[in-house]
Design a protein around this nucleic acid. Structure first.
Lengths: 350, 350
DNA sequence: TGTTAGCACTCTGTGTTGGCGAGTGCTAAT
DNA sequence: ATTAGCACTCGCCAACACAGAGTGCTAACA
């Protein structure tokens, strides 16, 4: 059987309608509502063909048709109407980067909040995994007697800090010596590559007690750990409850507990990462079995040339793909520009 | 009508049973299950009395009885069986403070996660509101050319920092002068009391351009803002879906969207704060109308002598009060000890 | 040969009905 | 004061009928 233009038009009409109404569509409805110049009987025949080809499914005999994952796939790839954001919508999305942020985490929180509010689906984001980032600089700042802040900057310009406590007094001259030692020995390395024993030995040689050095190394490790850890933001998780496919309590609970599990979201988001452009995973295309009846639209953003995080929108497979895709595309641009600003590069210089 | 001992025993039996079963209790059930030495008819009469007195309610004629808010109140105040945590349970709660934390936020995240897992209700926590904390010290640390970290310590020993960017070069000698100026002028004050214009003038006098000073002041303000802001953690929000009173979708949605609103939770938690001990707000005792059919158990923890945050557990009014109360009491102790450790005072010295 | 009108058939959702069971309140006996 | 007995109430559930939407097939038509 061949997929001619008429079939495509009919399929598009069915999916458009289903995305809007969430109810199986009958041939009569299509014939009446969309001006295809065809009778319901003809459409009926075509629908039977489309079902045979796997683009449509029938919940039961004598019900209307519903798009299958394969149908959505064709829709997203070829049939979907282009959707340009109007001024009003652009203004709404832009609000995500209007209040000035100081940190990536804040930026992502606002971006996901705006995206979920705008699309009425659930929005998520993860920070880049910087497992193999290298240490650029370390600073130790005394805060008050017995307390200091260890500050680590990595090669992406990300700054993390950790508050440490000394059991005994450490004067600033000694902290200076330790700072130099650490920068000498750690700069350019990942923390895994660092030889902690060597540093302890060298520390003793320049007269630094283990009591002082240990918490500093621990604080450094904590900073590195913070950098290596995914941070994750989810907004609008309850939006899913507004969609009729989740009126069933058990399905809703399953979805929400999936969102509570940090690891599953990370897997879902990172798994579908693609260097550029937008990825759409429809239903069974998702690796994660618990979201087999959801669609996940993701895009990755760059923090430095080597590290990328991901933003995603998840909703029922019956999703307003065109709206979701255009809004996530625009949000990626907003976030990328803002990151460039945060990290000190001007957007136009990139 | 007088509330004699027998009535109390019956009321307790009804509430115990209802907490367990979530279904209206009939007189026959009580007579059979609890050995009160009374026939169902007698209990029936007593139940009618208890309803008239407002401790019980009847969903409809010929249904069993259900405790009212007033009934729960008496139960919590007088009838509730004491509940001691066993070793296993203590071990589970203790796991909240076993992985070493560096920050209050981490500590609260773990505490709420463990509490919600243990009780199967929703657990929340807010950090203290430090609106009127005063500035103890400010440091400016150059990170790389054009970037620096502003660090502010307040009188409670809480450290916040903010990454800033300079439009022009700032040498470390100049940053030192600014640091001294800021400490001179701001130490001991709240940020509202600070005279920013005066600082700008003084800055110009010692040869610091506005281009340099402005981001520093902005970074300082950001730190103060972070301190003044409530941070809030919610864990186990989907636990509510496991309780039959929330099998109705709309109620569940309402509950979950309440949790999404930061402000409402803050209001709920802070509103019920009481300097010491545990507060139980049952159903209509809550100010917030959206949780009129929930009970909220809160306890506050001290960060310094003047500042306190709150931990809470929220669930249906049909809640295992004794378990919730004993576990939140124990968690308060764990969190308090851990905060003392974090802020450098040893638990035993307090 | 593709399109359409007509028709019998299928299946779900909804409203109705009737019996069952749990529980109550009241009365009279203990 | 307590209890046995009884009539009554009301929600729950299964059975049933039925309307409505939609299908597939056949035959007629352009």
């Amino acid at each position: 059987m061949i997929m001619d233009d008429r079939k495509k038009r009919i399929l598009q009409a069915i999916i458009d309608d289903y995305i809007d109404k969430a109810e199986p569509i009958g041939s009569r409805t299509i014939a009446r509502k969309y001006e295809l110049g065809l009778s319901s009987a003809t459409i009926r025949n075509e629908m039977a063909d489309l079902e045979e080809m796997g683009y449509l499914a029938q919940p039961h005999t004598s019900a209307g048709r519903v798009p299958s994952d394969k149908g959505y796939r064709l829709y997203v790839d070829k049939l979907m109407p282009a959707r340009d954001l109007n001024h009003e919508e652009i203004r709404e999305l832009k609000s995500a980067t209007e209040t000035r942020v100081y940190e990536l985490s804040q930026l992502l929180k606002q971006a996901t909040a705006v995206l979920s509010g705008f699309t009425k689906y659930t929005s998520m984001a993860v920070t880049p995994r910087m497992r193999n980032s290298t240490i650029k600089a370390i600073q130790i700042v005394p805060i008050e007697p017995g307390k200091a802040l260890v500050i680590v900057v990595n090669n992406a310009g990300i700054v993390k800090n950790s508050l440490i406590k000394f059991a005994e007094q450490a004067n600033s001259e000694m902290l200076g010596r330790i700072t130099n030692l650490l920068n000498d020995k750690l700069a350019g390395l990942t923390f895994e590559q660092a030889d902690i024993e060597q540093i302890k030995t060298l520390g003793r040689e320049i007269g630094v007690s283990g009591e002082i050095l240990a918490p500093i190394l621990e604080g450094t490790a904590d900073c590195i750990y913070q950098m290596g850890d995914h941070e994750m933001y989810v907004e609008g998780s309850t939006n899913i409850l507004n969609h009729p496919e989740y009126k069933d309590m058990d399905k809703a609970r399953q979805f929400l507990s999936m969102l509570d599990e940090k690891t599953s979201i990370c897997r879902a988001l990172s798994g579908s990462a693609q260097p550029f452009g937008i990825t759409v995973r429809i239903g069974s295309e998702n690796d994660l079995s618990s979201i087999r009846d959801c669609s996940l639209v993701t895009v990755s953003y760059n923090v430095s040339d080597t590290m990328a995080g991901t933003i995603g929108i998840i909703g029922p497979t019956r999703m307003e793909y065109s709206k979701v895709i255009s809004s996530i595309r625009y949000m990626k641009k907003l976030v990328s520009d803002e990151i460039d600003r945060l990290l000190g590069r001007e957007p136009d210089s990139v």
